[in-house]
Amino acid sequence: MRVGIASPVVTQVPGVHSEWERTAGIEELGRIAETADRLGFHHLTCSEHVGIPREVAEQRGATYWDPLATLGYLAARTTRIRLATQVLVLGYHHPLEIAKRYGTLDRVSGGRLVLGLGVGSLEEEFALIGAQFEGRGSRADDALAALRASLSQREPEYHGEHYDYAGFVVEPHAVQARVPMWIGGRTLRSLRRAAKHGDGWVPFGLDTAQLREMLAKVDLPADFEVVLSAGRALDPMGRPEAAEAALAQVREAGATLIGAQLRARSADHYCEQLEALAGIAAGID
């Protein structure tokens, strides 16, 4: 069973993150990434928000580390684990900005980038940075097609409804021949978008019955990743049977890859929890 981790520290949602994360920094995160890398975890994550309205932060949290800076640092401290943006908001960037910035990350990490991408839902944040909120779904579809045509290309060319370019050199660019693109969302439309443009789907806020129902309605490409969360933070040392059951449940729901959050008292305890979780996941195989 392949398991990745929803990185602690970089995103702090009220009621979800652990108290120690409030004062943790890059050194603690780096040690956790090194441990996950050594143990063979598939990926670690970093999300994207520029600014959160004060009232929204009470529900979503206010801490969101920048994924490019964070994953660039973690790339230098790891060798195998994949670096996943979960997720970048497509409407905040021109496709070639993503191709250049994250293509450079793919280069410096030795081809370990996974682009998690989403349409976005926070209208205030769109307005803050001058991005267009209305019609964002159509623009996102065009951006995904543009990215697929442009990633890994020195001289990308694309002619679409919202994005149109040719005659530019993007160097450096991604070294993977096909950078994996995982599409986030919680609707059937997001799954269909992922099946059409991407290599995986990263849903959120859905129970196992809803996931099974949606997955049954869409013909998925070969090697398509269904990246499902294991749910509430796992405690593999204190409650190993519950952790094993949570992993098995999401695999039964259709997961090809599982994202896990861990309960911990400190960064050192988190690393110990990773050791325990790796053993549990290996036993399920």
Rank of each mutant, 00 (worst) to 15 (best):
A177Q: 15
Y73M: 02
F126V: 04
S152Y: 09
A76M: 13
A276C: 02
T23C: 02
D142C: 05
E19M: 05
A282D: 14
Y163S: 11
G103Q: 10
E155W: 10
S18N: 15
P172T: 03
P95N: 10
A230Q: 10
G283E: 08
V10R: 00
A281V: 01
G135Y: 11
L220W: 10
T208Y: 11
R22Y: 01
R186I: 01
A143G: 13
A143L: 08
H162I: 02
I258H: 03
R2V: 00
P67G: 10
A216T: 01
V250H: 04
S229N: 12
L71H: 06
T35I: 00
A127Q: 13
G111A: 07
Q210E: 15
D106P: 04
L144D: 02
R232A: 14
G279A: 03
T104Y: 12
K100T: 07
S266A: 04
V50M: 11
V114D: 15
S229M: 07
K196Y: 06
G160I: 07
G30Q: 10
S229I: 03
V10C: 01
R60I: 06
V10F: 00
V87C: 06
A174V: 03
L39N: 03
H42C: 04
R251V: 13
A36S: 05
E157R: 15
L206H: 04
L128G: 12
L74M: 06
G135K: 07
R239I: 00
R22C: 00
G40W: 12
V114Y: 08
P240H: 05
T11C: 11
E252W: 04
F224G: 05
P203I: 04
A166K: 14
R112W: 08
I98W: 06
L122V: 12
A149H: 14
H173L: 02
A149K: 14
R54P: 01
A230D: 08
T187I: 03
H43F: 15
G111W: 06
P95H: 12
E171T: 14
M237S: 14
I81T: 06
R112N: 06
A222D: 13
G4W: 02
R178P: 01
G200Q: 05
L247D: 04
I129K: 02
I81N: 05
H197C: 02
T85C: 10
A131I: 08
R60V: 12
A140S: 15
A281E: 03
S229H: 11
V227M: 09
H93Q: 10
L74P: 08
V170A: 13
P67V: 07
